[in-house]
């Protein structure tokens, strides 16, 4: 039990601090939600990237499908009342996990960078399929504001968009962190570690590499779908394919994971915190010029901590009594 609890302590502290900062005043909730989106994104991606060493550039497709899942629940099953949100999450899970199984079964046979970039093809292909055959509203997407208002009334819909959706992202991020700890300490984790170090050797030793890879991939995809459903559809109340199938989010997610340290538990949290905070804070100080400062800062941080901020900390605390808390 301890091996699950101890590593969660820093995570719980960080999440609680964020939550309390967010709740302490009205003006701080949305900035915290903004940072939280990046943290959760990093954490979901880290489940796969950190564990297997595989990079998925088309990762954003899972967020996109999750957001479509929620939007479709609203546009097709609005008669369900409050249950429609639950259905939306279920659809998000189904759609993103189906895609991940398809991609996993086919593309995970590719190694390294070939896999990474083949998944861009999946994402872009899917996007242009949606636009090309006018699936789910085609390029015009789905807007659910009015449906939400019809079901919940104006005040409750605003409450859902500006508070409940954010809390959901918190919860999703937290569960992702917990599951990461669990996986690290389980058979899957050991198997994946073997695969990460030397895939061929692991196969020879009798590890079903593909099975475990697909498991990690599907789990990571499901969390991405849930983030898409809450942080995009529920919160922003619309889905346009152009905005959701946007590779930039994958690149941002990878950047966050690397900023914090890939494969560490607290890495994505620190990464998301640094990235989200820098962007938010600097845009309030220098509106219009924030990226001119943020970009060199990111480069500076990575040159100083090539293994990520938490990767660095993890190395520093090795053989100290904090070792068990930072994994």
């Amino acid at each position: 039990m301890r091996r699950y609890v101890r590593p969660m302590i820093p995570v719980i502290i960080l999440y609680l601090t964020l939550l309390l900062v967010g709740l302490s005043s009205e003006s701080r909730w949305q900035p915290v939600a903004f940072i939280m989106f990046y943290i959760a994104l990093g954490q979901a991606l880290n489940m796969f990237l950190g564990m297997t060493g595989y990079v998925d550039f088309g990762y954003v497709a899972f967020l996109a499908l999750g957001s479509y899942g929620m939007a479709l629940a609203f546009s097709s099953f609005s008669s369900l009342g409050l249950w429609v949100i639950l259905l939306g999450f279920v659809l998000a899970i189904i759609m993103s996990s189906l895609l991940s199984l398809a991609v996993g079964a086919i593309a995970l046979r590719l190694r390294g960078a070939y896999f990474a970039i083949a998944t861009i093809g999946v994402n872009e292909g899917f996007r242009y399929l949606v636009e090309g055959v006018r699936l789910w509203g085609g390029s015009e997407g789905i807007i659910i504001s009015s449906t939400m208002k019809d079901i919940f009334g104006s005040d409750l819909s605003n409450y859902i968009s500006t508070f409940v959706a954010d809390i959901m992202v918190f919860v999703i991020g937290f569960i992702a962190a917990f599951l990461t700890v669990y996986i690290i300490n389980s058979r899957i984790g050991y198997a994946l570690m073997a695969v990460r170090e030397d895939e061929d050797a692991a196969r020879v030793m009798g590890v079903f590499a593909t099975k475990y890879k697909i498991m990690a991939f599907a789990m990571s995809a499901i969390f991405a779908g849930l983030i898409g459903a809450s942080a995009w559809t529920l919160k922003l109340t619309y889905v346009f394919p152009e905005d959701v199938f946007n590779i930039t989010y994958t690149v941002e997610a990878i950047a966050i994971v690397m900023l914090g340290g890939a494969g560490t538990l607290t890495g994505p949290i620190m990464g998301g915190l640094i990235y989200g905070f820098l962007r938010y804070y600097l845009s309030t100080v220098l509106p219009g010029f924030q990226l001119l400062v943020v970009a060199p800062l990111l480069v500076l941080i990575v040159t100083i901590f090539p293994e990520g901020v938490m990767g660095y900390v993890k190395r520093k605390v090795r053989n100290t009594r904090f070792e068990k808390y930072i994994i």
Partner: peptide, 22 residues
């Protein structure tokens, strides 16, 4: 009073809340 939303959908809600509250 304005902020730069970078043409991105994630940023707008936090800036609008800041505009109203701060």
């Amino acid at each position: 009073k304005y902020y730069d939303d970078e043409s991105k959908k994630e940023t707008v809600q936090s800036f609008y809340e800041r505009l109203v509250t701060v």
